[in-house]
């Protein structure tokens, strides 16, 4: 565990909690893509099946359980409890166009052709693009609430910090996982446009509105 990895995990945890808190506090999931949340729930479920087969540490297991529980709690809030506030008319990104290629790629490019390994690989590929429906929703409405942009910033930072963690681990531990690194780069690049807007607008106290 190095500082990049730890801050990455905390940033990830913070993102998930900000989202739950925002929906709960405002009693509304407006501006949040339920489709991205379906993809994230799929990602955690596919990746953390090793909770049943492999024990790494208490930290590892607790974080995994929190991520899975929070993902399904978020889905419950969006699709059941605060269903009336869900922005379904704007949340129209076709997730099958992400799910199918990721599944296919996981079957072809993986470390080992076993069920758990292919599911892990699928989750890595899917996570890298899972935010697209959310970014699509923001671009469609042309704006995001400030709390939603904090959520996106924390979520995007997490994989960027993991990239630093992988650079660190490569130099100091000789560790590298090409699948995770390439997917992590793709994931981080997808946020770049958003990071720019966040830094130039939200931090200066303005609302995140896309340039017309």
């Amino acid at each position: 565990m190095n500082i990049f990895r730890l801050t990455g995990d905390l940033s990830h945890l913070l993102a998930i909690l900000i989202l739950l808190w925002k929906i709960w506090k405002t009693r509304s999931c407006s501006g949040i893509s339920g489709r991205s949340q379906i993809l994230f729930a799929t990602v955690y479920t596919a990746r953390y099946l090793d909770l049943f087969t492999n024990f790494v540490s208490v930290y590892n297991s607790v974080m995994k359980i929190i991520f899975i529980a929070a993902a399904f709690a978020t889905l419950y809030l969006i699709y059941v409890k605060f269903k009336a506030t869900y922005d379904r008319n704007h949340d129209t990104f076709r997730i099958e166009f992400l799910l199918a290629p990721c599944a296919l790629l996981a079957l072809i490019l993986n470390h080992e052709f076993t069920i758990l390994e292919v599911l892990w690989t699928f989750s890595i590929y899917l996570e890298s693009v899972a935010i697209l429906p959310q970014l699509f929703l923001v671009s469609k409405t042309g704006e995001a609430e400030t709390i939603t942009s904090h959520y996106l910033f924390a979520l995007g930072s997490y994989r960027a910090l993991y990239l630093l963690n992988w650079i660190y681990r490569y130099y100091f531990e000789g560790f590298f996982d090409l699948i995770a690194i390439v997917a992590g780069i793709v994931q981080t690049v997808l946020y770049c446009d958003f990071f720019y807007l966040y830094i130039t607008r939200v931090i200066k106290g303005r609302a995140l509105k896309l340039p017309a």
């Binding site: 990830h12 790494v56 995994k64 470390h111 995770a180």
Partner: peptide
């Protein structure tokens, strides 16, 4: 020894 099998990352 394949180090990628030890999945300590989240």
């Amino acid at each position: 020894e394949d180090q990628t099998r030890v999945k300590d990352e989240l």
